[in-house]
Design a protein around this nucleic acid. Sequence first.
DNA 1: TAAATGACTAACA
DNA 2: GTGTTAGCCATTT
Length: 118
Amino acid sequence: MATDSASLYARIHELVRLIPAGSVATYGQLARLCGCSARQAGYAMAAAPDDVPWHRVINSRGEISPRKEGGESAQRGRLLDEGVTFDRRGRVDLGQVRWPGPSWAWLAANGYSVDGIE
DNA sequence: TAAATGACTAACA
DNA sequence: GTGTTAGCCATTT
């Protein structure tokens, strides 16, 4: 259970909730937005509740990250159900389905620096 | 308290 | 294209 860093996870989870169906984001992308490292983004997914579309978060290669349990297939299935296509290698076309990120308005409304760099 | 772990990434060979 | 190295930092042991 998260301790003091629960707010950090909450922030990541909120970002993930903004990802529309049919789009995907990378761990590093979320990490940049929440101001933490990519590993923490992965940890946040492991701890993500069911109301978070964690299946829309993949690694920078556009593949499903291998984890302990074999939940990869479930994640792939959810994405396919949302219209995300995988190529023969099991990778998605990030150039096509990658989530551009939250709107500037959202960022500003949530205390993020719109300048990109605080 | 210290060391190991991990749903990562970028850079380099 | 693949393999290795280093950096990352909360969580777990």
